[in-house]
């Protein structure tokens, strides 16, 4: 495992070089925050509490959601698609590396980059410009663990979708559909509480809410009981383990296609 750390460092360094992306990423996120602010302000025109949430709670949720969204955005599927197209996949086969672990660390480097470049500045803006208050509680301490698990889940899903690229050329359609499903149903765009009850219940059974909704809950409502949070972490752990392992199995199948077809 240790031998993969340089891989993470490499992608982190690449992030440093692309200053434009850095700058525009921050600008883009701030614009989104502004738009979200106005949108929710207008929604809360009629009442102070909707679906059990106040404007402040919802706005913090959405703002933090966007910061985390960028953070957890792995391009694992697009990278695989690119490497398939360029024929670079064959190169990985000849080296003594575990491709999934390699991809994981590469994306992790990107995550660290996003953390320092975008998430931290956004959080600072939140604290000082919008003057939101952070409540302390056990949720806050479990947040980093939750985030890490969320990253694993997100990565596994993206990696899985990326592997479908071995079977089909229609990678764009698949990735976009996956992105929509994950974004909308994970609570990244709007708090899950806003969905009709029936739909909400279904969503809680899917892994998507474990990506954004869980860590966000830890940040916005950190003083629910420890047992509540530990249960959420357990769910995340289960999903992370399951999806990572499934993706691994799929890789073994998919790589056979490459070996037979000649890539």
């Amino acid at each position: 495992m240790r031998s993969y750390f340089p891989v993470a460092r490499a992608t982190y360094m690449i992030g440093l070089v692309y200053r434009f992306g850095f700058l525009f990423g921050i600008v883009g996120n701030l614009v989104y925050l502004g738009v979200a602010y106005y949108l929710w302000k207008s929604i809360y025109r009629y009442s102070d509490v909707i679906r059990g949430l106040t404007f402040n709670e919802t706005f913090i949720y959405v703002a933090l959601g966007s910061a985390i969204f960028i953070l957890l955005k792995t391009y694992a599927d697009w990278i695989i698609h690119y490497e398939i197209r360029e024929g670079a996949i064959a190169m990985y086969l000849t080296k003594p590396i575990d491709y999934q672990i390699y991809a994981l660390f590469a994306n992790f480097g990107a995550l660290l980059m996003n953390l320092s470049a975008i998430t931290v500045p956004t959080a600072l803006v939140m604290l000082f410009v919008f003057k939101v208050n952070f409540v302390f509680g056990p949720g806050l301490f479990l947040f980093p663990i939750s985030l890490l698990l969320a990253f694993l889940i997100s990565f596994s899903i993206d990696y899985f979708v990326g592997l479908i690229g071995f079977y089909s050329e229609s990678v764009w359609g698949l990735s976009i559909t996956k992105e929509i499903i994950v974004t909308v149903f994970s609570g990244a765009l709007i708090p899950l509480q806003f969905f009709p009850d029936g739909i909400q219940r279904v969503l809680y059974w899917l892994p998507f809410q474990a990506i954004y909704h869980t860590p966000l809950m830890m940040l916005t409502r950190p003083n629910q009981g420890l047992d509540v949070f530990l249960a959420m972490i357990l769910v995340q752990l289960l999903w992370a383990g399951l999806l990572f392992w499934l993706a691994r199995l799929f890789y073994n199948q998919a790589i056979k296609v490459l070996r037979i077809a000649g890539g």
Binding site: I43, R45, Y46, S47, I50, R51, S168, E169, S170, W172, G173, L174, S175, I176, T177, E179, I180, I181, T183, V184, L189, I190, F194, F195, P196
Partner: peptide, 27 residues
């Protein structure tokens, strides 16, 4: 590819509308 991309396009183009719909259920 044409069919799958069209399906992907279908979903992605309606995503924001979906968000509006969900919101307008509550206000």
């Amino acid at each position: 590819d044409f069919i799958i991309s069209s399906i992907g396009m279908f979903f992605s183009s309606l995503a924001t509308l979906g968000v509006f719909w969900v919101i307008l259920e509550s206000v």
